[in-house]
Amino acid sequence: MTTDLVQFLSGIDIFKKLDRTELSTVADSLRRISAAANEILFRQGDEGDELFIIAEGQVAVTVRLPSGDSFEVAQFGAGTFLGEMAIFDRSPRSASCVTKEASTLYSMSSRDFYSLVHDHPRAAIKIMYRMLEATTGRLTNSSKFLSDMVVWGEGARKRAITDDFTGLYNRRFLDDAIEDQTAQALAEGRPMSVLMFDLDHFHAINEAYGMEIGDHVIKSLVPVIRQTLRDTDLPARYGGDEFTVILPDTGPAEALEIAWKLVHGVSELTVLQEIDGPIDTVSTSVGVASLPGHGKTGSELKDRADEALYAAKSAGRNRAEVWKRADVGA
């Protein structure tokens, strides 16, 4: 068995520079492990004190995500090793390791490795040199993995707060952001305004042309919104053809100017003029509400902006209105 093990070890990367006598010494320090499928070898956070060499089978390395889920980083098969850093400083494991199938492994403890360093320093130096090379390569791959994870996480974050149809923020983001922005503005004594707007006669457009054209009209608003708003503004599709915009550091007069720019920009759209049908114009009505005079919470500002929006509808549409108490029930 020792001869077979020595032969096996000679093919393992970290032992390739050892002669047969040195390999035999290493073989004597190893402990054989038979593991069933799905057996946990170690958990993320456990104190590490063993190097593992896989003789047969397959093991997976996983990390725990902030969500609590496990994410598989890599798989290792026969002839590979893992956990090499643990035998140096007994630091907590940076990942978990579990067998994917019935596996046979050999382990070297930190204590046995330091005995090798003491008794056979030449062999230990060879092993450490190969470990350093292997670890450098793995750290390079880990850096790429972490970079990929950051990109993946950023993409997931964006997907969670973005409206797929328009690319603007979604209602979930808006509902959270408006409360945060309102509280911050009040605490710092800064102005803030909210716009709510939707398309005039959108139901009639859908009835005349169908929902596909209606969707096309909604999408045509996005360039107008982006061109009209500033980089600090937060536009969101609130649902259907309804949109909400948070305007930081903006009082009611300036917010009304921006609202009117939206009105004029939308009125210049020619998307329906390209289609033979009963409606050839696109217009919007916009409601404006501002801190601190129109409300003290994000929810109140949305309600006031919505009331001002309906006041704009009642006044003839294709216009912008700032909230007034008389708007309630308009």
Rank of each mutant, 00 (worst) to 15 (best):
P121M: 08
Y114P: 08
A55M: 10
Y106G: 07
D13W: 02
V98M: 14
A326T: 14
D280M: 02
S29E: 13
R319Q: 11
R111Y: 06
L221V: 03
E212R: 10
S142E: 13
D200V: 14
A27R: 05
F113S: 12
E307A: 15
E22A: 12
D69Y: 04
G214W: 12
R325L: 04
L229I: 07
G189M: 05
I213D: 01
R32F: 06
T25E: 10
D148N: 08
A305R: 09
S290G: 08
E22K: 02
S109A: 06
Y114H: 15
N38C: 08
V224G: 01
E72K: 10
W260Q: 14
P292G: 11
H264N: 05
D89S: 08
I12Q: 07
T62F: 01
D4M: 04
R138P: 09
V266K: 01
P191T: 08
F76K: 15
K158Q: 15
I127R: 09
M196E: 11
T135V: 12
G79S: 00
R130L: 09
G11N: 14
I33N: 05
I225D: 06
L247N: 05
N141G: 01
A315M: 08
S143I: 09
E321R: 15
G295T: 06
N38E: 13
R122L: 15
D215S: 09
F113W: 12
K296H: 09
D176S: 04
F88Q: 06
I161H: 02
S283V: 06
V224S: 09
D89K: 07
M85H: 01
I246W: 02
V217G: 05
P235A: 03
F243R: 09
G295P: 05
D233K: 01
S290Q: 03
D112M: 07
F42N: 04
L65K: 14
A160Q: 01
I87M: 13
T182P: 11
P292L: 05
L168F: 00
S67G: 14
A259R: 03
G79W: 03
W260N: 15
L168I: 06
R190E: 15
Y129N: 14
S283L: 04
E268I: 00
K296R: 12
G68D: 07
G45F: 05
T297A: 09
L174S: 02
G210D: 08
L146D: 12
P223D: 02
D233R: 03
K126W: 11
G240L: 01
A289E: 01
T232E: 04
V224D: 11
L195P: 04
T166D: 03
M85R: 02
H201W: 13
P248R: 00
T62M: 00
D89C: 02
D215V: 04
I161A: 05
F42S: 06
S220A: 15
H294V: 00
D241K: 10
A37T: 14
G293N: 11
V6Q: 04
Y106V: 04
L269I: 07
K261S: 08
